[in-house]
Design a binder for these strands. Sequence first.
DNA 1: AATGAATGAGCATTCATTCAT
DNA 2: TATGAATGAATGCTCATTCAT
Lengths: 213, 213, 213, 213
Amino acid sequence: MPLCKATFDKIPKEKRDRILNVAIKEFADNGFENTSIQQIAKKAGISVGSIYKYFENKETMFSMVVHEGMSSLEELLMSLADSSEDILVKAETIIRALLKYSRKNPELIKLYCQLTTSDKSEFLNGISQRIEAVSASIYTVTISKAQETGDVRDDINPAFFAFLLDNIFMMLQFATACDYYKERFFIYTGKQATESDDLIVQQTLKFLKAAFE
Amino acid sequence: MPLCKATFDKIPKEKRDRILNVAIKEFADNGFENTSIQQIAKKAGISVGSIYKYFENKETMFSMVVHEGMSSLEELLMSLADSSEDILVKAETIIRALLKYSRKNPELIKLYCQLTTSDKSEFLNGISQRIEAVSASIYTVTISKAQETGDVRDDINPAFFAFLLDNIFMMLQFATACDYYKERFFIYTGKQATESDDLIVQQTLKFLKAAFE
Amino acid sequence: MPLCKATFDKIPKEKRDRILNVAIKEFADNGFENTSIQQIAKKAGISVGSIYKYFENKETMFSMVVHEGMSSLEELLMSLADSSEDILVKAETIIRALLKYSRKNPELIKLYCQLTTSDKSEFLNGISQRIEAVSASIYTVTISKAQETGDVRDDINPAFFAFLLDNIFMMLQFATACDYYKERFFIYTGKQATESDDLIVQQTLKFLKAAFE
Amino acid sequence: MPLCKATFDKIPKEKRDRILNVAIKEFADNGFENTSIQQIAKKAGISVGSIYKYFENKETMFSMVVHEGMSSLEELLMSLADSSEDILVKAETIIRALLKYSRKNPELIKLYCQLTTSDKSEFLNGISQRIEAVSASIYTVTISKAQETGDVRDDINPAFFAFLLDNIFMMLQFATACDYYKERFFIYTGKQATESDDLIVQQTLKFLKAAFE
DNA sequence: AATGAATGAGCATTCATTCAT
DNA sequence: TATGAATGAATGCTCATTCAT
């Protein structure tokens, strides 16, 4: 069960990207229900019929779009996983990378956020399950290793700490890209913090450093 | 601009609660778009016409419902704010209370979660701002005070730490009530943790204790 | 599984009939697929939404319409069944009645004809099965009785002769109401016959008289 | 106005037949409206574009298909017309031939049946007129001749009797090939009759013999 | 000549909202 | 005040037809 029809893989990359980007933006901004196929078609400069030549239906188009968006996020995480530095250095690298990514691709983060309230069937065919599994594994393994080398204390549950860690990372991303979370961030910290990645990184690391060591 | 018409305040409390509870459940389970006024009317045993006698439109009804739900959460937070104990004891109290609340009122937590992707800005900048403001204030003040008494170290930004703290609290609640977050929690920690409040409390406190002291 | 919702039974008879008549005409003239709900709504002077308040969907609306039409035909047949006259007198009565009915309600006959090529599920929920069963029973019983009284010869299969008889009746009705069959009738007999019920009755009876006696 | 473009006459017979057979089957099984050009193209292993190179549009394609199907039926009738035997012997020959044909080519009979409810008048007044004219002429002439030789009684209208005769023939064919008429036949006579050509022939002849002589 | 991607009008159906009773 | 029938714009999706390659 592919997420798009063969036709979609054959069209010029430029057009393909245009369609996906329009769809990402629409779904991210309005959610699944408030996004209309006709709007996507119009904004992408193609016909409604074409969309149905490319995708089985609205739902699989959404899946495809989510898949694309999440793949990019997944890649980023994978690329960060390998570095074998100190856990806090690694944390800083990750935070900076995630924030940079959020600022650059707010639509993808919004889309991710939309996912959290979507009740599309079967956890979106496992797409979102996978990205969560990837981060879960990366963070848990990193913490476990750090426990072995003595960099992280022994009396904690690596999986649970990984979970808390990811929650913080996720929230920071939402806080820079999604309206509700942005507003909320602002209420807590005022304008300055919300715009200064340095402040965010510095304070978050302080929080984590203590928690881990 | 009131969230319900005068008529709604006049009807018997029993009926009022019935309507609000049905609406909360529907909006929480299906989201704003997938909830229909006719369904709410039918399940609440009243007519569609009545709903429009009570509320201006679907959007303000949603606002009202969110307002009601959030008020209950707000009250809980306020009640926890006063206790003047040690900050970590307080944290434990709060976590236990929030988890208990989530388990008991998953609908309200789901509703809260729905809010985060809703773009009904009229009240986004109203109701939800207030609840965030309340927790922001409580946590920030608590941390500031603890800094004064020396219970929390001096080199941190109270507002930002309050933000991180609340993120963790919010996520724990989502993780016990909302499908996506539940699944995600499970991926990280497996079945055992998701069902044991004690484990959650204990590990989370370890995380916080180190971070604060 | 009723063919219309309760709402439809509550509206004024005048309106009810108007809607059904428009629907009968549309379905009869254009067939199921070429009839659009929006057209029916417009021609009946009601809104599309109302149609869906009255009927579950297009298919059940069609069933209802067929049911209504066939009931009227069924009643006619039942009313003709009782008379205990000579079989040929009875045949004449029936032919005259059916022709009169066809001339007066060509839409219903057209609708019946549409049925014969419709592949709507389960033989249209048995609706059409019933009308066929009614005529089958009436004709077969009549022939059997006539065999007992010696009015019809003994060496024939009553059910099969009833079948041939009904075929002829049905064709005569189609030939007066449905375009294709009208044209065909004309090709065979020219203008005169197609318009003269007397000629049709007289010649058909000659045909039957010989066949039966 | 030819029913297909010149191109269609130039392609290899094998391909031509494949296309026509697929189209006949699709139109016969699903009716005009429920048959899609894309389906025909796919099942025939050609492109949609080709179909439009061969036929002006869906309607003329249908016409062509009907024409092909009816021609085959027409040929059969013509071949039966010449034999100069006794009228009842001829009738038996015809019935047996028509039944055999129906059992062998149910698609063509279904298609013929579809024609009766189609309102594509352009060709209704063309193709189908011709086949009806052919049988009308054959049957009428046969009866007239039989009247001259004294084989059929004098006091009947040959054209009208030919019409009744053809109705019976047509119905027998429909009763062996088309769902609605099959079901109806079964209701009248039960399983045995519907499957036994001998019984059908024998009883029908009894019916006709008396009517004619 | 053959292809099949592209088009867009058209259809069944839903649902927030109104209003006569 | 309460009702629920009526409305009609909007949506997802289909499919005959066209046309660039």
